[in-house]
Design a binder for these strands. Structure first.
Lengths: 202, 202
DNA sequence: CCCATTCTTCATCACCCGATGAAGAACACC
DNA sequence: GGTGTTCTTCATCGGGTGATGAAGAATGGG
């Protein structure tokens, strides 16, 4: 038997799309865990059992890979859509439940990845801000229609960001270990109050 | 006139304590703006008009300098003390006012620096969590004394983190541009409600 | 069967990082 | 006025970074 190591020799050995997909998957996890700046292309390549050069072959630059990871054209809008579909009187619970459920199940949600990268990466900060403005503040304000709608939407954003940071980044107890239902029961009414409750006069 | 450049020659030319202080000041601003990982010792040295080696001469390591920057033995406990000094019925407003006023005035508060570094630096994450647990959750829970005190304190932490991230890191409108009084009027009652309002039964 | 395309590896580039060590200049003290 | 301590500069080390280019191997179409 001629002992030639097929696995460590140049040339085709996988479908290409498979490698590209594997890189994307690993990149999602690592960017999610450590943020943009603290994740190296080499670490992604190693974890994906791939040569670092392949990352650039498929995605051009590190930023290109990050853009692919944080692309929100997938299932994200669908989840958001379901929030605005139901009754306004129970939208608070729906916001909290949708947020926490989506962020809990898949450990590579673009929103958390962006939130983790935003503090040190201006590009991520801009992306995060634009996403929140467009998909949350804008739609919530339009839904309410009242003059103080923008402020109310801002209050909800504070709840969402605080919840995400406390649970997924800083791991503050008892928020980090609470169940989805507990969080919904606790923060659902609070968010609801921000949107439809009475607030202080100007 | 013998043209010898005094400013670029080795040897004493400042008091030492002055240089050490200047480095600390610049480090505060840069760590605050970019977080631990994205701030380089060289950048600090350049901004402080000092040789990079001096940073290590005075502070040993980059981490040592960061520890000096995020040291909370200064005026921070005093501000926190004033929160717990007053009436329980108005503690919500006091929390928000103290938080925002302190974070607004000096652009190098350790709390924001830690919050910005936490997502990518495990050490900062631990420090932030310990600070919140010790100075906020613990004291708030002790103040309330009720069985659900921990959860209520956790809700306040979410408000604080959300407010800090929305206003100082992600710059979400209209939170980022709101005045101190507006924020107090908006979030004071909300925080108050988290602590002393009625919540959902278990 | 040949050849162009696609995937893969390797070597390497230029740059930046944190950190160290030596040596020189100004100061404080005696 | 010598002497030792303190502050400062410079050169450099080892290592990691993103990115590039060339060349080799499998594949598929003619």
């Amino acid at each position: 038997m001629t002992e030639h190591d097929n696995s460590r020799r140049p040339g085709r050995w996988r479908s290409g799309a498979e490698s590209k997909q594997r890189i994307l998957q690993v990149a999602r996890e690592l960017f999610h865990q450590h943020g943009y700046g603290s994740t190296t292309v080499r670490a992604i390549a190693t974890a994906a059992e791939v040569d670092p050069a392949m990352v650039f072959y498929f995605y051009g630059t590190k930023q290109g890979l990050f853009s692919a990871v944080t692309d929100m054209s997938g299932a994200v809008p669908q989840a958001i859509e379901s929030i605005f579909a139901g009754d306004l009187a129970t939208i608070g619970e729906r916001i909290v439940r949708t947020l926490v459920e989506n962020l809990d199940k898949s450990d590579h949600m673009p929103l958390v990845t962006l939130t983790r990268s935003a503090p040190t990466d201006p590009r991520s900060e801009a992306l995060l801000r634009e996403f929140i403005d467009r998909e949350l503040t804008g739609r919530l304000a339009a839904l309410l229609g009242t003059p103080d709608a923008e402020l109310r939407a801002g209050m909800v954003n504070v709840q969402i960001l605080g919840l995400a940071v406390a649970r997924y980044i800083a791991h503050i107890e008892p928020i980090a270990s609470a169940s989805v239902d507990e969080l919904v029961a606790t923060f659902g009414p609070l968010v609801q109050h921000c949107l439809t409750g009475r607030t202080a006069p100007p």
